[in-house]
Computed example of a mutant assay.
Amino acid sequence: MGQLLSPPGPHAVHLCIDMQGLFAPGSPWATPWMERALPQMLGLTAHAPQRTAFTRFIPVRNKTEARGVWKAYYEKWECVTRDKVDLALLELVPSLARFVPPAAVIDRQAYCAFASGRLQTFLDEHQVDTLIVSGGETDVCVLATVLAAVDIGYRVILAEDALCSSSDESHDALLDLYPKRFSLQIEVARTARILASWAVND
């Protein structure tokens, strides 16, 4: 579908987005084929746990804390506010959580992983120039994060078989869009190809 233009390089980080119990099968926001993409996320994480950052979407405590249109959002999804949800669902799925540390965990309350400023601080501290992106959902939090990363100036490599969504149609549409409209800034490649070329020095 896309191509890897060159190896990720020594300053790449694997950014794994929102692989939490909240999105696992049987949970309020279950992403149906999360389990299908999880082995590829595990492969990327195991390859370089010290160069992996997991993000977590943390809902507001209750709907009265929400601002603007998020109020309507949490009116609909009050069941996932922290006063209502099983807080264990906010944790990473166990197969990935075992890599923390050395992998980092970065929280925020918006779709974009850069929203809190903590991710940017982490990337600056580690002199990161390239993001290898996995996780979910392709058409929500991954989308918001990838476009923000492009605006900041990061090279973005999407691990196409390590992404998941609740919508096959919008997932496929985005993976078709990126190489056509962002070919100099966003690369799309399968996990095996990324791993074969990603040399990690630390």
Rank of each mutant, 00 (worst) to 15 (best):
H126A: 13
L143C: 09
E160V: 12
A149D: 05
S134N: 06
E160T: 15
V142S: 04
G135L: 11
G135H: 11
D124K: 15
E160N: 13
F122V: 08
D129K: 02
D124I: 14
I152P: 00
V128N: 06
D129H: 10
D129Y: 10
R155K: 14
V156I: 08
F122A: 12
A148V: 12
G136W: 06
V150R: 05
L123D: 10
S134D: 08
I132N: 00
I152L: 11
G153Q: 09
S134A: 14
L147W: 14
V142W: 01
I152N: 02
V133C: 00
I152R: 14
V128Q: 08
E125W: 07
V128L: 11
L158W: 11
L158Y: 09
T138H: 07
E137G: 07
L131H: 00
V133Y: 06
L147E: 12
T145W: 01
Q127S: 15
A149I: 07
G136M: 12
C141Q: 04
V128C: 15
I157H: 04
Y154D: 09
T130K: 02
E160I: 11
Y154K: 06
I132Y: 01
A159Y: 04
T138D: 09
V156E: 10
V146S: 06
F122G: 05
F122Y: 15
E125S: 14
G136C: 10
H126G: 10
D151I: 06
V150K: 09
V150N: 05
V146I: 13
L131A: 03
V133M: 04
D151A: 13
V156F: 00
E125H: 12
A144R: 09
V150P: 03
S134M: 04
H126W: 13
I132P: 01
A148C: 13
H126Y: 07
L147Q: 15
E125D: 15
G153S: 02
E125R: 14
C141P: 02
V133R: 00
L143S: 10
A148W: 11
Y154V: 01
T145I: 05
D124E: 15
T130D: 07
A144I: 10
L158K: 08
Q127H: 15
